[in-house]
Structure formats: structure tokens, C-alpha cells
Computed example of a mutant assay.
Amino acid sequence: MYQADQIKILLVDDEPTILQFLEMGLRSEGFQVMTAEEGISAIQTAREFHPHVVILDVMMPGLDGFEVCKMLKRLENVAVIMLTAKEEVDDRVRGLTVGADDYMIKPFSFEELLARIHARIRNQFPQLMNELTIGPFSIDDSRREIRYEQRTLSLSATEYELLKYLVIHHNRVVSKAVILENVWGYDFGGQENIVEVYIRALREKLDDRDHQIIRTIRGSGYRVDLS
């Protein structure tokens, strides 16, 4: 995993309410965040800030998102996630053609955006990946290992991703639907009870008989409590 405070994110959107919402959410996750409301200032900010990820709206006054994306890709080693209210396939194709690394349609969930940011960092900035310690857990993405109280857990690939997701989002309730989206994938066609099966397996491996490590929040989901 990586330390979030190592990651710089530039938000570019001409809607102040969206900028404020995303900036607040990403700062709360620990990221360094800068914002811009139009294309020229976005390019200027990128030159000074050197972001790892740019969240870029398509429809803006002056330079649109497609032009900004092309200029950013010439200037920086940067991951660009484009946002648009349009659903036309042509826009998505054009965005990817000019260099965008991912594409999201408004409205979208913050959790989905966060998952895509994590994916882009893993894929494009592997040098930032290292061992992350959170409470009694140590997550080593390079070795695909998680240790709990210095004990290396024997985990399947899915168990590893699920426990990592819960630990990274510790002290926060995450629903089964959110877990399915972020661990199994957006097009997962199975049943939500698969989450219960994997939670049970993790509790056994953590020796969590009393459900004090992975708590069930009835009617809401699961939460890992760490002080």
C-alpha cells in the first residue's frame, strides 16, 4: 500500500460545489489536494503542484477537458480520470483517445472515485507502494501479505483484498454493496451473502471469535475498529 499523504491530487471542475465536496472528501482520506475551476489555471497549477492524479471535468469554459488532458499528458507523468455528465460513447472514446486513463459518468459515488484513484496509483506509480501499518495490522502490497500483531495471515487473493479494504477504511461502516463494488468489482453478478462467507473466514484466521476486530453493524455492514 502507500501513504496517502504522499499522493497529490488536482481537482478540475467549474462547479464549486463539486470541487468543495471532492476536496473535503479526499483531504479527509489524507491526500494532498489542489483545485482549479478552468483549464488554463489547471495547467498552471499542475506545473507547480506536480500531481499524481488529476480528476478532470470535460465540460468547462475556455479549454475543455479533452484539451486540458492532452496538455497535461505532455507536461507530466500523471493519471487522468475524466468526469462528465454526458453518457455518449463518443465522449468516452474521445477522452481515452486523448490520453485519459479512466472515465466516470456523473453522478458517481465518492467510494467509486476513491477505488479508481487507488487503482491508478497502483498501476502508474508502483514506486510509491510500500508497507503500510495501521494499528496492529501491517499491509505489504508488494508481497501481498497482511500481518496482524506480527503474525502473517494465510489469505486467499480475495481475503487479502477484503481485509485490506476493511482495514484501510477502519472506524467506518462499509455496506455489503460497497464491499462488492470495491473488492469483487463493479460488474460482479453474484449474491451479497458471499461477503458474509468471506467475513466468517477472516474472523477465523484473525481468531476473532467475539467479533471484536471485524464488527457487524446490523442493517448497515461491517466495521474494523482501531484506536
Rank of each mutant, 00 (worst) to 15 (best):
H169Y: 09
L153H: 00
G190I: 02
G135C: 00
M59E: 15
L63H: 08
I134P: 06
K164I: 02
V80S: 07
V174F: 07
L226R: 04
E145I: 08
G99E: 12
L153N: 00
E159M: 02
A100G: 04
Q32R: 15
E38T: 08
G95E: 13
F49W: 01
Y103W: 12
E111C: 09
I117C: 03
A119F: 12
I55Q: 10
D187T: 15
L153A: 00
D141F: 10
E204I: 03
Y160N: 02
Y198K: 11
R143K: 10
A42N: 02
L72G: 06
R144E: 15
P107R: 03
R151E: 05
V167E: 01
T152I: 08
S138M: 10
M24P: 11
D5R: 11
V54L: 09
S142R: 11
A42R: 02
M34I: 09
L163M: 03
Y165L: 10
E159L: 05
I146E: 00
G135I: 00
Q44Y: 10
A100M: 11
I81F: 10
R74H: 12
I146Q: 01
G219D: 02
A36I: 03
R144A: 13
I40Y: 14
V58K: 12
R143S: 10
L56Q: 07
V89Y: 15
L26Y: 04
I139N: 02
M82W: 08
S138L: 06
T84H: 07
P126G: 05
V98D: 12
P126E: 06
E67R: 12
D102T: 11
L113I: 03
Q124L: 15
I213V: 01
V12N: 07
S175R: 02
I18P: 12
M104P: 04
M82D: 05
I214M: 00
D210M: 04
I7D: 02
L153T: 00
P61N: 06
E38F: 10
F125K: 04
F110K: 08
A46L: 06
M34C: 13
H169S: 10
L26S: 03
E181A: 13
